[in-house]
Amino acid sequence: MLQQTKSAEFQSSAVTKPGNQWRRTSKVLQYVIFPGTIILLWQIFSVIGFVRRNVFPPPTEVLSVWYDLITGATDIAGRYSGTWLDHAWASTWRVFAGFSWGVALGIFVGLLIGLSKVMERVLDPTIQVFRNIPVTAWVPLSLIFFGIGNAPAVFMIGLGAFFPAAINTTHGVRQINITLYKAAKMMGANDQELLSRVILPAALPSILTGVRLSMGIAWVLVVVAEILAVRSGLGYLLNDAYLFYRNDVVIAAMLSIGLLGFLSDRLVVIVRDIVLTWNEKETFGGEH
């Protein structure tokens, strides 16, 4: 183990040597080659005129309309010019509002089910049935109960975020190494100490996996909710632009959602990596 760490350090210092310029370039290439090819093919495809330009605009046009969406400088985006920030903020806010309550409740319920056989019998069957109802099937009822606005959106996003958090927390608690639990108990840990110092940290990798899935689902549902239940947000922008036949705006909105979803996911991953420095040492996460 010791030896390995040393040789790894040696290797990483070797990478920064000027002689290995090519290695670094090739690494950058590995990142760029796939998206680069897609964009290039897309551009060629649209410019050739295979499909009509306003049906499938090339990346250059999407970029310039995106620029106008954000800044409002060129007015290419017409009625949507300069509205991007408001829409993006509306979506992000809804995602985090729904995500927060869904994940918090999910972790709490997951702990209950994982720790107590009684709670498992009381709660788990219901959760397993409701888990199989797609959150999109909740659209009619949420609209009836909450009306048009933020409430049904935040409700549906939270509902979607709840299940992965709850199920992964339960799983995390159940797979805790029994020896650790026994050892803490033997040393005299009380219930509160067992929970905060053994069960929660041991279940954390699994809990955070659930949280990450929840974040992904939240971004899916915000679009659904904004198409159907609210008059703001990137999902609304996307749907409205579709109705007005502005496919360049549609694609810009799509990419915006992808980008914000990606950034939110990175946020979860960063938090995870800060909290779970210990976990990677025992898993297949290294260099290949």
Binding site: T179, A184, M186, G188, E193, A202, L204
Partner: peptide, 30 residues
């Protein structure tokens, strides 16, 4: 805690350093 158990499968908390593992028992309220 009057009967300390050493398990075959070492009972060390993977998220704690060696030092913190040794300190674990004494940091408990009991």
């Amino acid at each position: 805690p009057d009967r300390g158990v050493v398990f075959q499968q070492t009972a060390l908390f993977p998220w704690l350093s060696v030092e913190d593992n040794i300190a674990f028992g004494l940091s408990l309220r009991a």
